[in-house]
């Protein structure tokens, strides 16, 4: 898509990231917070890929440098998968234990 500038992709990425940040702060449901984190991860993935596409995969870069973006995206996906599996398991465990999953009430770790 040569007609679309890099800044457009970055703008979308920025918007998704900020939305995710807001969501993490204002929501109280841990699952939704989790989803907002996924949103932020994906925003970053988008930024990775657009940089790889626009900055490194051009004649000035090299394949080696350009592949850094996709590679990182793959790793982020894998880490996200692991994170979700364990995180949702923890949420389920908390729910079983306390019958409650409001993050504001999950404050047993306070000092």
């Amino acid at each position: 898509m040569n007609g679309v500038p890099l800044s457009a992709y970055l703008g979308l990425s920025m918007f998704m990231f900020s939305t995710g940040v807001i969501g993490v702060i204002i929501r109280r449901n841990p699952i939704v917070i989790f989803m907002c984190i996924e949103l932020m991860l994906n925003a970053v993935n988008l930024a990775f890929l657009s940089f790889a596409r626009y900055k490194f995969a051009t004649a000035e870069g090299s394949l080696e440098s350009a592949m850094g973006g996709p590679m990182f995206v793959i790793f982020v996906m894998a880490v996200a998968a692991a994170e979700v599996a364990v995180g949702l398991g923890i949420i389920m465990a908390i729910f079983r234990l306390r019958e409650n999953i409001d993050v504001d009430e999950l404050n047993l770790l306070k000092g």
Binding site: N2, G3, P5, L6, S7, A8, L10, G11, M14, L49, A52, R53, Y54, A57, T58, A59, E60, G61, S62, L63, A66, M67, G69, P70
Partner: peptide, 18 residues
């Protein structure tokens, strides 16, 4: 990001990332 809109030059994709 916004100032980047002003200086957009598209470059051809050389390497097959996908």
């Amino acid at each position: 990001i916004v100032p980047m809109f002003a200086r957009t030059e598209s470059k051809p994709l050389v390497y097959p990332l996908g």
